[in-house]
C-alpha cells in the first residue's frame, strides 16, 4: 500500500511537471513573441523591451521555464502583468469563493446522481426507473449555460418566476456574512450539479446494473436477502470504486462548469479571474492559474485513487 501511494504521488508530481511544460509551450513558445502578445499590436518597441526585461522574456525559453519552475517550488507563482500583484495572493483570495463553489457543486451532483442512480437501477424494469434514466439522458445533454439561465428564470431574484435566490454577484462583504455569501452560490452550484449529477446518475446506474449480474449478489439473495436488498447492500459496495473513479473523471468537467457559472453569475472567483486574464493577455498569470486548476484536478484524481484502494480489500492487501 505504501509503495502504491509513493508511486501514485510520483505520478502526480510528474503530471504537474508535464502540465507546466504543456502550458508553457502553448502560451510562450507557440505564439512567437510573448511580449508582443502581452503588449498588444500597438505597443511601441520601447514598451516591448520594458515588458521583456520586466518578465525575463529576454532570456532563453528553457531559462524562462526553469525560473518559473524554480519559483513554483518556492510557492512563488509570479506577478500579474496588469496589476503587479503577486499571483499567489490573488489566487488564494479567489479560492475563498471558488473552492466552496466547487465543493457545493460536487455535493449537489452527488446528491442528485447517487440516490437517483441507485433508484433507477433498482427499479430499472418499472416505469419510474425508465423515467429516471430518460431524465438523466436529457439533463446530461444540456449546456451548463442554459441550465444556469433557466434556473435564473425559474428561481432567480429580479428575473425569476419565484424570486427565491440571488442570481448575480457575490456580496462585497464576502464570508463575513455567511448566509448571503452561501445563498449567492446556490443557483450556480445547482446549475453545475444538475448537469454533472445527470452524468454521475448514468454511471451509477450502469455500474449497479452490472452488479445485478454478479454471482455473489445472487448468493446474498440466496442467503435470505430480497433481490433489492442484495443489490443495494452487496452490489453497491462493489461498485464503489467504479463510482469513485467516475467522480474523479468528473473533476475536470466540474472545474470547467465552475469557470462557466462564475462568469454566468458574475461571481468574482478564479474562473472569472481567468476569463479576464485571458482577455488581458496576461500570459504569466494565465499560465500559473491554469497550472493550479489542472493541479487541483490531478490532486482529486490522486486522492480518489488512494481512497478506492483503501475501500477495496483485494487491492488494499494485494501485497499479502
Amino acid at each position: 500500500m505504501t509503495q502504491y501511494v509513493l508511486r501514485r504521488v510520483a505520478l502526480f508530481v510528474l503530471g504537474l511537471v508535464l502540465t507546466s511544460a504543456l502550458v508553457f509551450a502553448l502560451l510562450r513558445v507557440l505564439p512567437g513573441d510573448a511580449a508582443q502578445v502581452m503588449g498588444g499590436v500597438k505597443a511601441t518597441p520601447e514598451r516591448l523591451d520594458q515588458i521583456r526585461a520586466a518578465y525575463g522574456l529576454d532570456r532563453s525559453l528553457p531559462a524562462q521555464y526553469g525560473s518559473w519552475l524554480a519559483g513554483l517550488l518556492h510557492g512563488d507563482l509570479g506577478q500579474s502583468l496588469i496589476t503587479g500583484v503577486p499571483i499567489k495572493d490573488e489566487i488564494t483570495q479567489k479560492f475563498a469563493l471558488t473552492l466552496p463553489l466547487a465543493g457545493l457543486s460536487l455535493l449537489f451532483s452527488l446528491l442528485i446522481g447517487v440516490p437517483l442512480g441507485i433508484a433507477s437501477a433498482v427499479y430499472y424494469d418499472t416505469k419510474l426507473g425508465g423515467f429516471a434514466s430518460a431524465v438523466a439522458q436529457g439533463l446530461a445533454a444540456i449546456p451548463i449555460v442554459w441550465a444556469g439561465l433557466l434556473l435564473i428564470i425559474l428561481l432567480g431574484k429580479g428575473a425569476g418566476l419565484l424570486e427565491l435566490l440571488p442570481s448575480q454577484g457575490f456580496p462585497r462583504t464576502g464570508w463575513s456574512e455567511p448566509g448571503r455569501a452561501f445563498a449567492s452560490l446556490i443557483l450556480p452550484a445547482l446549475a453545475v450539479g444538475i448537469v454533472e449529477g445527470a452524468v454521475i446518475l448514468r454511471f451509477v446506474r450502469s455500474a449497479l446494473l452490472e452488479a445485478r449480474g454478479q454471482d455473489h449478489v445472487r448468493t446474498a439473495a440466496a442467503l435470505g436477502l430480497t433481490r433489492r436488498q442484495a443489490l443495494i447492500r452487496r452490489g453497491l459496495p462493489g461498485a464503489g470504486p467504479a463510482i469513485l473513479s467516475v467522480v474523479a473523471l468528473q473533476a475536470a468537467s466540474l472545474i470547467v462548469g465552475v469557470v462557466v457559472v462564475e462568469a454566468l453569475f458574475a461571481l468574482p472567483g478564479m474562473g472569472s479571474m481567468l476569463v479576464t486574464d485571458v482577455g488581458n493577455r496576461d500570459l504569466i498569470k494565465v499560465q500559473s492559474t491554469v497550472l493550479v486548476l489542472v493541479g487541483l484536478v490531478l490532486l482529486i484524481g490522486l486522492l480518489v485513487d488512494i481512497a478506492s484502494r483503501l475501500i477495496d480489500p483485494r487491492q488494499r492487501r494485494a501485497g499479502e
Binding site: V23, L26, A252, S253, V259, V275, V286, L293, V294
Partner: peptide, 11 residues
C-alpha cells in the same frame, strides 16, 4: 485530466 475548457483558454 486536462480540462478541455482550460486548453481552449490557453489557446
Amino acid at each position: 485530466a486536462f480540462p478541455t475548457l482550460l486548453l481552449a483558454m490557453v489557446l
